[in-house]
Design a protein around this nucleic acid. Sequence first.
DNA 1: CGCGGCTTTGATGTTCATCAAGTAAAGTGG
DNA 2: CCACTTTACTTGATGAACATCAAAGCCGCG
Lengths: 232, 232
Amino acid sequence: MIAHNISECNCKECALRPLFFNHTTKEQYSNLCNSKTEKQYRSGEIIINEGEEIKDFLYLKDGLVKLFRKGKDNNDQIITFACPFDFVSLLSIFSDTKFRYSVSALHDSTVCMLDIEMVRSLCRKNGEVAMEIMEKMSNISDEIINQFLNIRQKHLRGRIAFVLLYFSEKIFKSNSFDLPVSRREIAEYIGMTTENVIRILSEFRKDSIIGISGKSINIKDEKRLKVICDLG
Amino acid sequence: MIAHNISECNCKECALRPLFFNHTTKEQYSNLCNSKTEKQYRSGEIIINEGEEIKDFLYLKDGLVKLFRKGKDNNDQIITFACPFDFVSLLSIFSDTKFRYSVSALHDSTVCMLDIEMVRSLCRKNGEVAMEIMEKMSNISDEIINQFLNIRQKHLRGRIAFVLLYFSEKIFKSNSFDLPVSRREIAEYIGMTTENVIRILSEFRKDSIIGISGKSINIKDEKRLKVICDLG
DNA sequence: CGCGGCTTTGATGTTCATCAAGTAAAGTGG
DNA sequence: CCACTTTACTTGATGAACATCAAAGCCGCG
C-alpha cells in the first residue's frame, strides 16, 4: 500500500482498508477510491429500504445501525445491529438484486459506498479480495445464525440478560451505557412483547442486577446476569 | 470445459461442476479432480461432528442430510436440511478452523470432498470461482436467516404447516412423501415440543388437511395449509 | 397546549411446556 | 426366534410462561 498514491482520498485511514487494498494493484485501488462516496445519516434515518435495488456495496465507517425487516401485521423484526466496519449491506448482496432487509441509523452514522458492479468485477479479477470479503460475510452470517439459535432456547429473562450483555460487551465495551434502542426495539430483536421487556428490566432493577434510568443502563451484577443468560 | 481431459474422473456428470470447472484452467481442474474423494454414508450416520477440524470442503452429491448443533441440556437444534448440491460444510467454512455444526445423513448419502486448502488457494488465484462460491454461500445463509425469522413469528400450527409445505415443495416436490425425520426432529427444527408436534399433526388429520400413516404424509388441502402457514 | 409515541403496571386469558401413562415399533442379546 | 430393552409415538391433565388488553403517566414536538 505504500506504493499507492493515497493523497486523493482518505482511505488510508479506513479500518476496512486491509480488506480491499492490501491485495489490489495501483489501478484497482485508485478506481475504488474514485468511485467511493461517503454519506452521513442522522439517528433515525433509513439507510437502506427493504426491496430497493442493490446498487452499492455499503460499509459503516462510523455510528451504529440496525438491520430489520417487516414481519406480519407490519411488525418489524430486528435481525442484528452493526458497528463500524461491520458490513451493512452484507446479506443477499452477492446473491440477489434487491435488498431483503432494511437498515436504519441508531446513532448518527457515516456510510461509505462503492459501486457494487465495481466490487463484483474486482472480486472476479482478484481472488484475494474475494476471499477477504467471503471470510467477513461468512463470519457475520454465522454470528447471526448463532444468535438466533441461542436466543431461541432461552426464556424471556435469559433473553433480556443476553441483550444487556450483548450491548455491554460487543457494542459499548462498558458496564454503563445508554440503550441505543427503545424497549419496543429490544422486543423486536429477541422476539417478545414490549410489556415483558419492561417488566423484566424492572425485575432486574428490583433485584439490583442492573440500574436503569430512562435509556441509561448500569450493570451492577454482571456475574448474576451471565448466569441468567446461560440458564434462563 | 470441453478442452479438459475428463476421462480420469466423473466430475463431468456433477451438477456442481459449473461452480468450479467453468472458470478453471486445465491444471486447476485436474488438481481438483485428483484430490477429490467420494464417500458414502448410511442413513443415520454422522458426516461432520461439531467441533471437528475443517479439513475438507464437502458437498452433497446424493441423499439428504440435516445440519444441527447441541443446545442446552443436550437438546439438539436443527438448523436446516440439505439436498444434493446444496453445500454441506458451508457455514463457518471460510471463517473458522472448526465446524460449528454437525451434519448427519437422513437418507443414504454420497458426499464429495475437496481439500479445503486447495479450494482456498484456488479461490485466491481465481476470483471467478470465489464469486461462484460466495453467491452460493450468501444464498444459503440468507435462506436460513429468512427461515428463522419466518418461523419465529408463527404459532405452533403455523410452524407445522410451514414444515409440511417445506418438505412438500422444497425437498420432495410432491404432495405425498415420507417424512425423513422423527416427530422429535421436527420439534428440534421449529423450536417446540415433540408432544405438540404430534398433537397438531393429529389435528390436521382430523380436519382432513393431511393424511398420516406413520412417516407417510399426504397433503390433501394444500390451500388451507398455506393459509395456516401464512396466518398461523 | 395537545397530540402521538414511549414507558409502566396490573388484570386477564391463551398458548404452550411439562408431567404422566400407555401403546406401538424397533433394535439387542441369548 | 423370543424375551428384553430401548426408542418412537400418542393422548390427556395440569400448570407455567407469555401475550393481550386496558389505563395511566411521561416526554418531546409541532
